[in-house]
Simulated assay, not measured.
Amino acid sequence: MTNLIRIAPVVLLLSGCTSANSQSMPYKAWTLGFSAPDYMEVWIETADVVDIQNHVFQRAASGIASMQSPPNNTGNPRGWPKRGPVGSGKRVTGADLPQQIYVRWQSLVEPQTYLMVIKIPESTRELMRKEEKAFCSLTGEWTTRYRDSIGIRLIPGGIARVWVGGPCLAPIEVTTVKAVIDPRGPYEGKSGGKYDSLSDDSKAYVEKFGVPYDSWK
């Protein structure tokens, strides 16, 4: 209950939506993306952003987190990736760099609905403002780039790990967050507790191997 109380002010803050007039970052927009391990299907109900100017961007991202589900149980959902993927998402246009990201999401393999607030410290924003030289293997050339994306990996049990990255630059892990369960269930209780069905490949994997909670500790 304490964690839910801490989230409540953010929920109230997200009741409005405005656009930033000026930006502290050296590019026009940054990317917010989500991923999940193989077979561990995730549906993002909403990802709302509060930028450093206290402007609110509701549903800055939503929908399916990127995930692979190879047939015949040939995928491997266990553990964290060495390089944090950006995942599926979109550019957050009109916003300055983020102060907080509020996410309500469904872990369909459990199934369970989670709430979390990801606080972005100034040290992370400095990484996103820093210009770096990088060698791009695709072009075979050196270039200067920014880490202009935030990638969030969502895990059963309500865990999220966050990286910042950019084209040709190695992603940097910045935080891990533990979500709380939303007692209202999916879609804020508007679906009568009903979750979407798993794909056949995800269902087959979970029925045979279960959910590898221990691999994400």
Rank of each mutant, 00 (worst) to 15 (best):
M1I: 13
M1P: 13
I5F: 05
R6N: 12
R6D: 13
I7S: 02
I7Q: 00
I7C: 00
V10P: 00
V11K: 13
S15K: 14
G16W: 07
P26G: 08
Y27H: 09
K28A: 15
A29I: 03
A29R: 11
G33L: 11
F34I: 05
S35R: 02
P37C: 01
D38A: 12
E45V: 14
D51C: 06
D51T: 09
N54S: 13
H55I: 01
Q58V: 15
A60H: 01
A61L: 04
I64A: 04
M67A: 08
W80T: 02
R83D: 12
R83Q: 12
V86P: 00
A95Q: 04
Q100W: 09
V103N: 04
W105M: 01
W105G: 01
V109K: 02
P111R: 09
K119I: 02
I120R: 05
P121H: 03
E122C: 00
S123R: 13
T124D: 07
E126R: 11
L127H: 03
M128P: 07
A134N: 02
C136R: 11
L138W: 05
T139A: 08
T139M: 03
L154Y: 04
L154C: 06
I155W: 01
P156D: 07
I159N: 11
I159V: 14
R161V: 08
G165C: 04
G166D: 10
C168V: 12
C168E: 10
A170G: 02
E173F: 07
P186Y: 11
E188S: 12
S191N: 01
G192F: 10
G192T: 09
G193M: 05
K194G: 00
K194L: 11
L198A: 06
L198C: 06
S199D: 09
Y205H: 09
G210F: 00
V211M: 02
V211E: 03
P212C: 09
K217L: 14
K217H: 12
